[in-house]
Design a binder for these strands. Structure first.
Lengths: 146, 146
DNA sequence: CAATATGGTTCGAGACTCGAACTAATGGGA
DNA sequence: TCCCATTAGTTCGAGTCTCGAACCATATTG
């Protein structure tokens, strides 16, 4: 993303807090014994409550099916997810979160909440609420899925 | 970054527009014959007007020195940057943008401007200005450098 | 029931990243 | 002046991430 001149480039500005959050959530999970890489986290975070197909994970994370399969293999070896047959389609399998995988969710959520609290303390309630609203709006035109 | 429940997780929300921008800038550069990968772009974007040391690039991009060296090797082979001796320190070298490398800047800047215009059209002037202000504030506590 | 489409996997290769160990030059003291 | 801890950068080996192309199995369509 070459681009210079006054680092107020909004792309970079979006990146800093995103990276900070991702790094801290990963660090927190590691403290609790869950060694999850960035790539694994991005896939894992997109698994729905009732499981999600590999193709859907790939589409939403904007990675190819082989890449998604590679990541799911790792998550499966780590015991965080498993592949079960999709009852509605014999070709498909659903990637579902295991009980062990589910344990990570409150840990991650707590860290996210802590970070959001810090950010709110720094910029104020109003700005944080506004930030969230604007990002939700932007998602409408920047996230091809949903 | 495992975390679910209501995709209003602000980490993800930051990520969507960031990714959209990065992808489009890269695509635009490719159209103009500049094949720059994500990793290369992130390093290139941090080279200052008078050149920057490898260690500084690594620190700012939060990658290790070997990784930064690997990327700079590629950019150098592509003719976009070169390493020149640092006149103030015999151990160091400055990574500087070549004339060819400089040609990419207006191309990327134009695409960034176009995207910002689209975003502004979608959320409004006021919200965009507010978004930028808030992100600048957040950078103060999420970017260890600067 | 053939033809096409869809869900996933396998294969081979390239890009990215790191930690550890190393070389070269700097900058303080004794 | 000379030694040595520090800093800038590279080399090495290994592991992770990513993709395109080719492939298999099951659905779906006409």
């Amino acid at each position: 993303m070459p681009e210079r001149e006054d680092d107020q480039n909004i792309g970079l500005l979006l990146f800093y807090p995103y990276r900070a959050m991702e790094d801290r959530v990963r660090a927190r999970l590691a403290e609790h014994g869950y060694e999850v890489t960035t790539a694994q986290g991005r896939v894992f975070a997109r698994i729905g409550p009732d499981g999600t197909r590999l193709s859907d994970l790939a589409a939403q994370a904007q990675i190819t099916k082989p890449t998604a399969g590679f990541i799911v293999d790792q998550l499966e070896r780590a015991g965080l997810v498993e592949r079960v047959p999709d009852p509605t389609d014999g070709r498909a399998r659903l990637v579902v979160i295991t009980d062990k995988g589910r344990e990570t969710i409150p840990v991650a959520a707590a860290e996210v909440a802590a970070i959001e609290a810090e950010w709110t303390a720094h910029v104020g309630e109003r700005r944080m609420a506004e930030l969230r609203r604007t990002l939700v709006r932007l998602r409408e035109i920047t996230d091809p899925y949903r």
